[in-house]
Design a protein around this nucleic acid. Structure first.
Lengths: 155, 155
DNA sequence: TATGGGGCTTCCCACTGTGGGAAGGTCAAC
DNA sequence: GTTGACCTTCCCACAGTGGGAAGCCCCATA
């Protein structure tokens, strides 16, 4: 299988497969005489595994860990579960953060009559003029703490 | 006020203030003879406004819109509310996506006994061997649809 | 056998925001 | 006049992903 077929079979673009190789998430693929990368069923399985893990919002380093455990037939399920649970915790933290934002903003929007008049509590709040609703925000003062998470834009 | 004072007063780093200026989110600051940027109260207000808007997870382009409306004394509150509501929708979409991930992963973790034995449904599921739980994932096939959102990593 | 089209290779650039740092100018206090 | 804190610009990095160019390769068809 060349990279295009592996891409179609795994659901990961060829571009990304090369990238994953470059960051050592997957081992270097075999090459034909002409330098084309070659893949087997096992490689495609690994790629699919990676795609699923990424679908759970896992960042690369967590995925890497998990791939390692997956390939180790003797790993204790304890370790796998720990990774999964820390990802669940990261997701919960992110959800809580977004929910706080959403609630605060929805409340402001609710208070805005939304007609042709110019006055609007949304702008007043953002300007800090009347700091009513206590929206905390993502606390940009706190340092490197917290769980990793591969946040995807809603582009 | 020079940029350092403005940074402390607004809660935005000097680095970011320069960046905001470079991407035309804020107009070029005045300069002293020596080339130092100078800021007044109004500028700091604008920076604070931007910080709050970013705290609501708004991407730069949405913030830019909002800053424009904020500075226009005659804007209809309808427009402001529309922006706020579309941000609420973006947040809700993101929350729904993360919640689906979290639930699916939590369910897998629940099913994993998490001891010293190697077998683990989390890995089986990720490998696609037994595709039981219908976790959809962020649907990477769908194109450019959806709302923008300034997703922040949990780094 | 020649030619064309599609696939492969590597390499660079873009994006979002943010931070780090180097090299050099400035300002104020001592 | 020196020191240290501040400012300036410029480049680099990060995570992932996409876009694209330049050049080689493989296969089918004329």
């Amino acid at each position: 299988m060349n990279i295009g077929e592996a891409a179609r079979a795994s659901g990961i673009t060829a571009k990304m497969i090369r990238y994953y190789e470059s960051v050592d998430l997957i081992p270097p693929a075999g090459r034909t005489e002409a330098g084309y990368r070659t893949y087997g069923e096992r490689d495609v399985d690994t790629l699919r595994f990676i795609r699923r893990a990424r679908d759970f919002g896992m960042p690369m380093d967590r995925v890497k860990l998990l791939v390692g455990l997956w390939q180790d037939k003797d790993r204790p399920s304890r370790e796998v579960k720990a990774i999964a649970l820390s990802q669940v915790a990261a997701l919960e933290a992110k959800i809580a953060e977004l929910t706080a934002m959403k609630d605060a903003l929805a409340e402001l929007a609710r208070a805005c009559h939304g007609d042709n008049r110019p006055d609007c509590p949304i702008l007043s709040d953002l300007a800090g003029a009347s700091f009513t609703s206590a929206h905390p925000g993502p606390d940009r003062r706190s340092g490197k703490a917290g769980q990793r998470f591969a946040g995807k834009r809603l582009a």
